[in-house]
Amino acid sequence: MLTLKDFQREEQPNWCPTCGNFGIILSVKKALMELNVPQEETVLVSGVGCFAKLPYWIKAYGFVGLHGRSLPVAQGVKLANSKLKVIAFGGDGDGYGEGGNHFIHACRRNVNIAYFVHNNGVFGLTTGQYSPTSKKGTKSKSSPSGSEEMPVNPLALAIASGAKFVARAYSGDPKGLVEIMKKAIEYEGFAFVDIMQSCITFGKEHDYFKDKIYHLDDSYDASDKVKAMGKALDYEETERFALGIIYQEL
C-alpha cells in the first residue's frame, strides 16, 4: 500500500504559507494513495500559474507545459497509453482564459482523464490582476475602477459543452475534496472538478467561503441535466456555493 511519504520529492512547495494549494496538493496525494494508483502509472499534467508547480512536488510522472495547454497534452498522453491515470490541472486564468477553447472541446471529446481547476478568482503569479472568474466590478491592479466583464461560469460551461461529470469542491474542505477527486479519477470519461480556492495574498481570504459553501445532500439528483444547470448557475444569485457532484450522466 502507498503512504503519503511515497509521494515525497526532494524539493518542498514554495507557495505562500497557508495557500489553498497546500490543501489541494495534499488531497491529490491522499486520493492517489487511497485509490492505490501505482505511481509510475500516474501522470500529472499542468500549465502555468502558481498551481502549475504542483507536479514538481509529487513523486509520479509529471509534465509542466505551457499556459492554458494542460488539457491537450493530458488528452494526448491518455490517447497514446490508455493504461495511464492522467490528471490535468488548470487555474482560472490558465484553464478558463488561455485554455478556454480546449476546455469546451475536452468536455465534448470525453477522453478518460480528470481535470482539476484551481479557481481562486485572481491572477496570483502575475501579482494580482482580476481573472476570468472574478466577479464583475472586481478592483485590481488591471481594473482600478472595477472589472467590466461577467465572470465565466465553469460548471454551466462544462455542462453545456457536453461534460458528463461536473463537480465543485473547495480547497478548505479536505475531506470533501479527496472524495470528489477519487470519484473523478475513477470516472470513465472526462471528469471536471472546479476547486474554489482562496488566495491569501491577492484574493479572497479563507473566511470568505465560510458561510457561503454547503454540501449537496443525498436528495440531490445529479443525473438531471436541467436541474444541474440550475444548480451550476444559482450562486450568481444566491452567492452560495454547492459542493459535490453537480452533474453526472448515468
Partner: peptide, 26 residues
C-alpha cells in the same frame, strides 16, 4: 494508429507532444 481532428492548432501540437511524451511516434 490514432488520428485526431481537434479544436485548433494549439491543441494540435500540444496533444502531439503529450502523445509523444507518453511514447507514441507523433
Amino acid at each position: 494508429l490514432k488520428v485526431m481532428q481537434v479544436e485548433d492548432e494549439i491543441a494540435v501540437i500540444n496533444m502531439a507532444i503529450g502523445a509523444s511524451y507518453a511514447g507514441a511516434r507523433a
